[in-house]
Design a protein around this nucleic acid. Structure first.
Lengths: 108, 108
DNA sequence: ATCCTTGTACGACGGATATCGAACTTTGAT
DNA sequence: ATCAAAGTTCGATATCCGTCGTACAAGGAT
């Protein structure tokens, strides 16, 4: 039962069907998190530190966790860093056009 | 200076250029408010009471104000009621595809 | 082994938020 | 004139949220 308990995994990601629209919108409603998502729009994997955000480390951890738990980003362990990427294809399948619209709106 | 002071107007709506994306996303991130917006998607004007929301009157007032101040809906006085409508064309001009994507996602 | 880098965990704190109930206002109907 | 209906306003409350600092853990480099 160890691998199946979600609480036990420190890097738990929601399944596609578990992603909730209000949660996604809330995750995107913060300027810091929106800038993270916009920076990931190119498709690259980037470490947390590479973003140069106007908040401290612990606040960064918080924002990346909110995005991950809402299903917006994926976090992958790589040595001592976490590589972040957008779950774009999955989000596009679940909520067609949403991410593009938000990214377009954030860019203007 | 009476007509130009925003605070004096109890039904102040933001101009298109003043609408802020994080504010809009936050306004849409609440399930009650999302259901209001979805119900207004047809384009009709509807009174507050016609929604039959699972909250009290004063909470309704709160949610409609959040949506109005974020620029998502317009409220018009008509006798003793307020007629609510989506600012769809304006939002579409400012954030193309956003409202459609959210409404599509909320409907599924 | 030691240190540096990257990030998490744990409180803590102040401000925002969703909710309610009760009192009030305004309008329209009886 | 009275009354009911639709909302607002005003506290009050409980919770959530963004932020920070400090302490901690794990990997990589020297």
């Amino acid at each position: 039962m160890s691998a199946l308990t979600p609480e036990a995994d420190p890097l738990a990601h929601p399944e596609l069907e578990q992603i909730d629209l209000p949660d996604v919108l809330h995750a995107l409603s913060d300027p810091v998190r929106l800038s993270i998502v916009a920076a990931l729009a190119s498709g690259e994997e980037r470490t947390c530190k590479s973003f140069d955000l106007p908040v401290t480390k612990s606040t960064c951890t918080h924002h990346f966790r909110v995005l991950r738990e809402a299903g917006v980003i994926r976090q992958r362990l790589e040595g001592t860093t976490r590589l972040n990427s957008l779950r774009r294809a999955e989000l596009d399948g679940r909520y067609p056009g949403l991410l593009d619209a938000v990214l377009g709106a954030a860019g203007s």
